[in-house]
């Protein structure tokens, strides 16, 4: 599509405006309601979507696999385990327990998992690494389930509400942290752009062109894990944006060169999560955003898989 840039921008603005109009019942939009509840929610959805999409884009290039994304690679699973350890094993009764400490543990889990993947990525081939990431995710969720089994009612409730994924209830501090993470991740990705391009043609080719493979890998994993870790910590594990947005952007821009894919991915990621948030807030009782995201994302992935097998 030739004019995909302006179209994406208009879609983004429309969805953002629409998101501000939905949620918290259908009453008149009061100033307080708008500024204190809906605006932070909209901004959270926007930043979270863009961050996860950008993470997914980098992982897909790095592993040269169209299905790679932080959720699949076990990074979200690591975050889940971190949150589970704090919320379930230690319990809400602990003196220092708060939403922030759970977020911190989730971030720790995500970051440690990414670190493990980066370390392993210097020794293993990309496909092996991808399978290992999926396995890691299973191990983490199994461990989380064991913790859930023995947890008290109150901590379970808290954990479940985090697990379901949500954009609402973020405080200004948390929003600022997420924005800072997105900015850092974005700078790293832009700086690493030509590395992401050349690695698509295989590690052999890249290294013989003089590309520093290890630096390219480390930069993109750092960028992806920072953004995923922070977003997952505050919003819960959100899948599918990371897979779907980069594919949509490649299709829209008709290119795989990251100079074009990167900005498009930011916009499509934000659009997708805004759409999911609108869908979540259309009902009298808001749905968890993680679930509506899956409802939007999964049909797309099935469509992609059916389409890809034709070629």
């Amino acid at each position: 599509m030739k004019r995909f840039g302006p179209i994406l921008c208009i879609a983004l603005l429309l969805l953002a405006a629409l998101d501000l109009l939905t949620g918290n019942g259908f009453g008149p939009v009061g100033g307080v309601l708008l500024w204190n509840l809906r605006l932070p929610r909209m901004l959270t959805a926007l930043i979270a979507g863009a961050s996860l999409a950008l993470s997914g884009m980098q992982m897909q290039a790095l592993f040269r696999n169209p299905l790679a994304d932080p959720h699949i690679m076990g990074v979200s699973g690591g975050a889940g385990l971190g949150a589970a350890i704090v919320a379930l094993a230690l319990g809400t009764s602990a003196a220092w327990f708060s939403g922030m400490s759970m977020a911190l543990a989730a971030f720790g889990g995500a970051f440690l998992t990414s670190l493990l993947i980066v370390v392993l990525s210097t020794r293993l081939r990309s496909t092996t690494l991808l399978i290992l990431g999926v396995m890691l995710g299973f191990v983490f969720s199994a461990l989380s389930s064991i913790l859930q089994y023995s947890a008290g009612e109150e901590s379970l409730k808290l954990f479940y509400s985090w697990m379901a994924g949500s954009f609402s209830g973020t405080r200004p501090v948390e929003l600022a942290i997420m924005a800072a993470a997105l900015l850092t991740g974005l700078v790293l990705a832009v700086w690493n752009r030509k590395g992401l391009d050349i690695i698509l043609f295989g590690e052999n080719y890249a290294s013989f062109s003089g590309a520093p493979l290890r630096r390219i890998r480390t930069l993109s994993m750092l960028s992806a894990s920072l953004m995923t870790g922070i977003v997952t910590a505050f919003c819960g594990p959100l899948g599918f944006v990371g897979i779907v947005a980069p594919h949509l952007s490649r299709r829209l821009s008709g290119s795989s060169a990251h100079a074009k894919v990167l900005p498009a991915t930011l916009a499509t990621g934000a659009c997708l999560s805004l759409a999911a948030d609108i869908l979540a807030n259309l009902w009298p009782i808001p749905l968890p955003a993680g679930s509506t995201l899956a409802l939007i994302g999964i049909p797309f992935i099935i469509w992609y898989l059916c389409h890809a097998s034709e070629h």
């Binding site: 698509l200 052999n204 080719y205 013989f208 290119s255």
Partner: peptide, 29 residues
């Protein structure tokens, strides 16, 4: 030039040659 370089969809021939010049290009490619 190693064997079996994949023909990745979404690069024009000119873009492909530019991408291959990793060492010769600036940070923005």
């Amino acid at each position: 030039i190693p064997t079996g370089i994949p023909k990745v969809k979404g690069f024009t021939l000119r873009e492909f040659v530019r991408t291959g010049c990793y060492k010769e290009s600036d940070w923005a490619g």
